[in-house]
């Protein structure tokens, strides 16, 4: 009986991993993340750079996990309508203007935010389309 325990345990582990990989949620997350990565290259990386580090005191980095978490509901608005306010990122003040990306569709924003909030040291899970749509109605 004891000899069987280890193989049994191993098989169980394989099944769990297999199920996890095929989980619908995971597939959705992965698809959002990879399209988000391509969208980031086209629309964001010119300023925020490939590594999300921004540019000195001119362009803020995307590495401030706390800021992203606290402003999660405003992120979609920032992208669509741009940003003129002074913000504090990683303890540094940024007062430049972020241009508006009004041409992006809500689904593209969901993918972009999924990518950004799960890269550059961030790990905040999927950003759902429904979440984007709800938040966009609340923009100032």
């Amino acid at each position: 009986m004891r000899r069987l325990l280890l193989p049994f345990f191993f098989c169980g582990l394989v099944i769990i991993i297999f199920l996890n990989a095929c989980n619908e949620e995971t597939i959705k997350y992965q698809s959002y993340y990879s399209s988000g990565s391509a969208l980031y290259k086209t629309h964001c990386s010119n300023c925020h750079m490939d590594d999300g580090e921004g540019l000195e005191a001119l362009i803020p980095p995307l590495t401030d996990t706390t800021f992203l978490k606290n402003n999660r509901e405003k992120l979609a608005c920032f992208i669509v309508y741009g940003l003129k306010d002074t913000i504090v990122i990683n303890g540094k003040t940024y007062d430049g203007v972020m241009p508006a990306e009004t041409h992006l569709a809500p689904i593209e924003i969901a993918k972009l935010l999924t990518y950004i909030t799960n890269t550059f040291g961030n790990n905040q899970g999927i950003y759902e389309l429904s979440e984007v749509e709800k938040n966009l109605r609340k923009c100032d």
Partner: peptide
Amino acid sequence: CPSICPIMSK
């Protein structure tokens, strides 16, 4: 400039 300038500056 929102296009290539930030990368050039960097």
